[in-house]
């Protein structure tokens, strides 16, 4: 015995029905076909997200063209530092510009090596303004450190090791030789780009040191060391290194 629905209610119901139909049709036609494939999301979004090209290629990619680096770099404390950390993303190198490190190496290196509370104590750090020179004068880090094979670790260690290892000759090692030995080798044999001193002609030695003292030399650190030395000290060093046996005849020409 249902009572007939009033007209206005029927109209309302029809309207509601139409609205629902339109809404449902819209849902069906506007929803992406892949939407329910794996869940309540558009499955096609996943391959889209997976499609991008990597910018950072990893060190293995760099070493393909720079195999010379695989000799030193993997053995050094910087072995965990990927090429692109300092050189920037390789993208599609080999033609990429800007893979050179920034000119300001102090800023680059101190990003990791500036002494700072919160940095783990075992991590090598320097106090800017005290290293390399206590008076605050600065010098590009790469004058002394090779970023591909960094070190030495502790200056004190080096100094003691050098002292006991200075070559024994008839000429006593002058005190200044410890400083030279840090970069030019314990026996003055030369280390990497730092030339050998052993066997070097004394007159040539003095001439070059005087050049550095005048400020006309090409090395900032040598200028600094030379300026700190007196004529007598330079003469002593020159005599000492001349007395040492040259490791290789080629080095005599230097």
């Amino acid at each position: 015995m249902t009572q007939k629905l009033p007209k206005h209610i029927v109209r309302l119901l029809l309207l509601l029905g139409c609205f629902l139909l339109v809404a449902y049709a819209a849902k069906v036609y506007l929803t992406d076909p892949s939407y329910y494939k794996y869940g309540y999301y558009r499955a096609d979004a996943v391959p889209e997200l997976a499609a991008g090209a990597p910018l950072y290629q990893g060190s293995a990619y760099c070493l393909e063209c720079h195999p010379e680096r695989s000799a030193d770099w993997p053995l050094t404390p910087h072995k965990a530092v990927q090429c692109e950390v300092c050189h920037g993303a390789s993208e599609e190198c080999p033609v990429k510009e800007g893979t050179r490190i920034p000119a300001d190496t102090i800023r680059l290196c101190s990003n990791c090596h500036e002494k700072m509370p919160a940095r783990p104590a075992a991590h090598p750090q320097i106090v800017l303004g005290e290293h390399p020179f206590a008076d605050g004068e600065t010098m590009p880090c790469i004058e002394c450190h090779d970023p591909h094979a960094p070190g030495p670790v502790a200056r004190e260690e080096v100094t003691t090791a050098v002292e006991s290892a200075l070559a024994a000759t008839d000429v006593a090692a002058p005190p200044g030789a410890k400083k030279c030995a840090k970069c030019h080798g314990k026996q003055g044999e030369g280390v990497k780009k730092n030339p050998a001193l052993a066997g070097k002609e004394a007159a040539r030695f003095i001439e070059q040191m005087n050049l550095y003292r005048s400020g006309a030399g090409d090395s900032k650190i040598m200028t600094r060391f030379a300026k700190a030395l007196s004529d007598e000290e330079i003469a002593e060093l020159a005599e000492y290194y001349q007395s040492l046996p040259a490791a290789h005849p080629r080095q005599l020409k230097e």
């Binding site: 991008g52 090209a53 910018l55 910087h78 965990a80 692109e84």
Partner: peptide
């Protein structure tokens, strides 16, 4: 996205790759 475009190609997320320590 954990660098979804990298991990799906067998690479590491870039933050993991560049971390020097």
């Amino acid at each position: 996205t954990w660098c979804y475009h990298r991990i799906t190609k067998g690479l590491q997320p870039v933050c993991v790759d560049v971390c020097p320590t």
